[in-house]
């Protein structure tokens, strides 16, 4: 009797233990699944980080929506960054009375542009945004900016428009009287950063002045951005 009684007991026990086993397998499988998912996400994330940070320029991670500035071009026409969707845009802030940083920036960018394959040249637009509208009229910019390369466009605007654009890109500038004391004669301290905007309007990269010397690496960045990186 004891045995017959004990039998269903043991059966019960085995059912219980198989249930426990099933639950254990389920938990293990679920844990494995979660671990797999996490590792997958982590690798994907690092691959993404890699793409975003393996640029020569300093990458914005994640890339920001590029501020759509409203300015005036060198022909006196209204100009919005949005007009250049579909092209990679390379631009910097400066002023034409600048003897050192600005001609250096524009000459370096001209060198980069000239070295781009002809097909890519059509997909790249270089802009120079003046922060000195008092002296840099559209006509002045038209005689200054395309000197470095025919395709380059000079932009200006009202003090407010320029200030808004500069603020959006973290750029800084201030007017400093020069030694002559003449009010029409001043210099401008400004951030010497070059910005790269992707064809879909994302602010991807920035370069400091010294980085512009290496045209090859900048071209690699531009080509990757054109390819959708």
């Amino acid at each position: 009797m004891k045995e017959t009684v004990s039998e269903p007991k043991s059966q019960n026990a085995s059912v219980a233990s198989s249930r426990a086993n099933g639950r254990r397998i389920f938990i293990t499988a679920a844990a494995l699944g979660v671990a797999l998912l996490i590792s997958l996400l982590v690798t994907r994330y690092f691959a993404y980080r890699d793409i975003q940070t393996n640029f020569y320029g300093q990458a914005l991670v994640p890339a920001k929506e590029a501020f759509d500035f409203h300015l005036v071009d060198q022909d006196g026409k209204a100009f919005q960054l949005r007009q250049l969707r579909g092209k990679a845009v390379v631009f910097s802030f400066g002023f034409t009375h600048c003897p050192n940083v600005c001609p250096t920036t524009l000459s370096d960018l001209a060198k980069v542009y000239r070295a781009l394959p002809a097909n890519d040249q059509k997909l790249v637009q270089v802009l120079f945004v003046s922060v000195d509208p008092q002296r840099d009229t559209p006509a002045m910019l038209k005689s200054y900016v395309p000197y470095f390369n025919d395709s380059f466009i000079g932009l200006t605007g009202t003090q407010e428009q320029i200030a808004e654009a500069a603020k959006a890109y973290g750029a800084f500038y201030e007017f400093v009287p020069d030694s002559t004391g003449n009010p029409g004669s001043y210099t401008v301290n400004h951030s010497a950063i070059t910005y790269l905007i992707s064809p879909d309007g994302k602010w991807k990269l920035l370069y400091d002045l010294d980085q512009l010397k290496d045209s090859k690496k900048i071209i690699q960045d531009i080509e990757r951005v054109l390819a959708g990186a």
């Binding site: 050192n100 973290g170 800084f172 010497a192 400091d208």
Partner: peptide, 28 residues
């Protein structure tokens, strides 16, 4: 400022070159 480099320019009376030293004038 804002993590971006600001470049400015200042006139000076002179730039010094110590004996045996070198003064490099370079873009930027």
């Amino acid at each position: 400022r804002n993590g971006q480099q600001i470049m400015g320019m200042e006139g000076v009376e002179h730039l010094e070159i110590p004996p045996g030293g070198v003064l490099e004038l370079k873009p930027g």
